Computed example of a mutant assay.
Amino acid sequence: MGLIALTSSRDAGIRMRQFLNELELVIPNAVKVNRGKLSIIEVASKALGLGADRIIYIGSRGGNPGFMRFLRVREGVIEVMPYLIRILGVKLLMDMPVNVTRRLRASSGIVISLREYTEVMDVLSEYIGLPSIRAYDFESVRGMYDSIFLIHRINNYYELQILNGRDLGPYGPFIRISDVIYTRPKVIRIE
């Protein structure tokens, strides 16, 4: 798989930009594309120019990340995938009481769901191109991957914790997810 472009809604706020910066380091083969005032077609052209064949579009809600939308791009076409992940809230590394120093760009990762199957695991695994497992204990993968995308259920939402594969400490944002919504797929022609 090629690169993954990360972008946001237009004129993103500080928290959204920080969220994208943190994701860029923990998702293998990810590159951030600053949206500014660009249309989604211009973002797709820029992504193709960088060698990206997928875009993760983070939509805003009140200045914070509100949803993840997934797009595939190829010459002349943008395919909007038929699902999106609704985000309830995020905790950035700067919000955490730990000091994460010297974070290297991840070159490998895995998506793990604790104890139960989740659609969130399938969507992330498929779209980011990482292997996924359902496990009762994620200690067994320590040291095998740079980043661990750990998904577990808390009451009526999911929490996605992005952990350092070596020491299992925070490596990226923690994301509260309500669910995966299925929508009508769309194809946008690039002229």
Score class of each variant (00 low, 15 high):
72 R>G: 04
72 R>H: 08
73 V>F: 11
73 V>S: 13
73 V>N: 08
74 R>H: 09
75 E>S: 10
75 E>P: 00
76 G>F: 03
76 G>V: 06
77 V>W: 02
78 I>V: 15
78 I>T: 11
78 I>E: 10
78 I>S: 11
80 V>H: 07
80 V>M: 07
80 V>F: 01
81 M>K: 14
84 L>V: 07
86 R>E: 09
86 R>V: 14
87 I>W: 08
87 I>M: 10
87 I>L: 07
88 L>A: 15
89 G>V: 04
89 G>I: 02
89 G>C: 01
89 G>Y: 04
90 V>M: 02
90 V>N: 01
91 K>W: 06
92 L>C: 08
93 L>E: 10
95 D>K: 08
96 M>N: 10
98 V>C: 14
98 V>S: 13
99 N>E: 13
99 N>C: 13
101 T>F: 13
101 T>H: 12
102 R>D: 15
104 L>M: 11
105 R>M: 05
106 A>V: 03
106 A>P: 05
107 S>A: 00
108 S>Y: 06
110 I>C: 03
110 I>S: 03
110 I>E: 02
111 V>Y: 06
112 I>D: 00
112 I>L: 15
113 S>H: 06
113 S>A: 13
114 L>V: 12
115 R>S: 06
115 R>M: 14
117 Y>Q: 01
118 T>R: 13
119 E>R: 15
120 V>N: 05
121 M>E: 12
124 L>W: 00
124 L>G: 04
125 S>D: 00
125 S>F: 01
125 S>V: 00
128 I>F: 06
130 L>F: 00
131 P>R: 01
133 I>H: 00
133 I>F: 00
133 I>A: 05
134 R>V: 14
134 R>I: 15
135 A>S: 11
139 E>G: 02
139 E>P: 00
143 G>W: 11
144 M>H: 05
144 M>I: 08
145 Y>R: 02
147 S>G: 03
148 I>C: 07
148 I>Y: 05
149 F>N: 07
149 F>M: 07
150 L>A: 08
151 I>A: 05
152 H>R: 12
152 H>A: 06
153 R>M: 09
154 I>A: 10
154 I>K: 09
155 N>C: 07
156 N>E: 15
157 Y>E: 13
158 Y>F: 15
159 E>L: 08
160 L>S: 05
